[in-house]
Simulated scan of single mutants.
Amino acid sequence: MANIPGAAQLFDELDKKLMVYLRDGRTLIGYLRSVDQFANLVLHRTIERIHVGDRYGDIDRGVFVIRGENVVLLGEIDEAREHAPSAASLTKVSIEEILEAQRVEQERKQEQDMLRSRFMKERGLQYMAEIGPDDMY
């Protein structure tokens, strides 16, 4: 097959299960149903996967339209290996549990940034927290 540059290469991925990492830090998994010249994507049977430490949870999202400029990374999921045990296996937990773990992790990071900022300010320096997905817009 010829090497087609740009968004046209995504046509080879139609009807395949993809993992898409977005600029806002979310990870989506779903079947690619449509793509256009701007790399806008339509995913079907989409889930949002949230990772915290060695745990993860999935939230059903259904049909999901993604603007192409928000895609950081995407790749095909090998469905044959998707559920096979691996050396770095993760534990699936309930939606409630993973959302609570995510909230606790975000609070811990904010507290850590506050302490770091206070420490730097006492020494006459200005601390700027790393730019995270929530700070991009």
Results as ranks from 00 to 15, higher is better:
93 V>Q: 01
28 L>Y: 05
55 R>Y: 03
22 L>W: 01
107 E>T: 09
96 E>A: 06
54 D>G: 09
52 V>S: 04
125 L>S: 14
48 E>Y: 10
77 I>R: 08
39 A>D: 06
112 Q>H: 15
125 L>M: 11
3 N>L: 06
88 A>E: 13
27 T>H: 13
40 N>T: 05
77 I>H: 12
109 K>S: 15
55 R>K: 06
56 Y>D: 00
117 S>G: 12
9 Q>S: 12
70 N>F: 08
90 L>W: 01
84 A>G: 11
118 R>Y: 08
110 Q>W: 15
33 R>H: 07
15 D>M: 06
118 R>H: 07
14 L>D: 13
115 L>H: 10
24 D>R: 09
67 R>S: 14
44 H>K: 14
74 L>A: 04
133 P>M: 11
99 L>D: 01
121 K>E: 10
64 F>Y: 07
50 I>E: 07
60 D>G: 07
66 I>M: 02
115 L>S: 14
125 L>D: 10
83 H>Y: 14
20 V>K: 00
11 F>W: 13
94 S>T: 04
122 E>D: 15
57 G>E: 00
16 K>Y: 13
64 F>T: 06
76 E>F: 03
135 D>A: 05
65 V>L: 13
108 R>I: 09
131 I>T: 12
44 H>E: 12
66 I>L: 03
12 D>G: 11
10 L>I: 12
10 L>C: 11
76 E>H: 04
105 E>C: 11
111 E>V: 14
64 F>K: 03
36 D>F: 00
87 A>C: 11
133 P>G: 15
119 F>W: 06
111 E>K: 15
13 E>F: 15
50 I>C: 11
12 D>S: 14
28 L>C: 10
59 I>F: 06
101 A>G: 10
45 R>Q: 08
24 D>F: 11
101 A>H: 06
69 E>Y: 05
63 V>G: 02
48 E>D: 13
75 G>V: 04
43 L>R: 00
57 G>L: 00
40 N>Y: 05
30 G>R: 02
18 L>R: 01
41 L>N: 01
131 I>M: 10
93 V>P: 01
113 D>S: 12
63 V>S: 06
79 E>K: 05
38 F>M: 09
85 P>D: 13
82 E>R: 11
41 L>T: 00
133 P>C: 15
127 Y>R: 00
127 Y>F: 10
113 D>K: 08
65 V>S: 14
125 L>V: 05
130 E>S: 15
72 V>C: 10
114 M>N: 14
1 M>I: 04
7 A>G: 03
132 G>K: 04
120 M>N: 09
124 G>T: 02
107 E>N: 12
53 G>D: 02
65 V>G: 14
16 K>G: 12
92 K>V: 04
1 M>P: 09
114 M>F: 15
81 R>C: 09
137 Y>M: 12
34 S>H: 07
28 L>H: 05
17 K>S: 07
75 G>Y: 08
7 A>K: 02
109 K>R: 15
26 R>C: 09
127 Y>V: 01
39 A>W: 03
123 R>V: 04
88 A>W: 07
51 H>S: 09
122 E>R: 09
87 A>L: 10
112 Q>W: 15
134 D>A: 15
72 V>G: 08
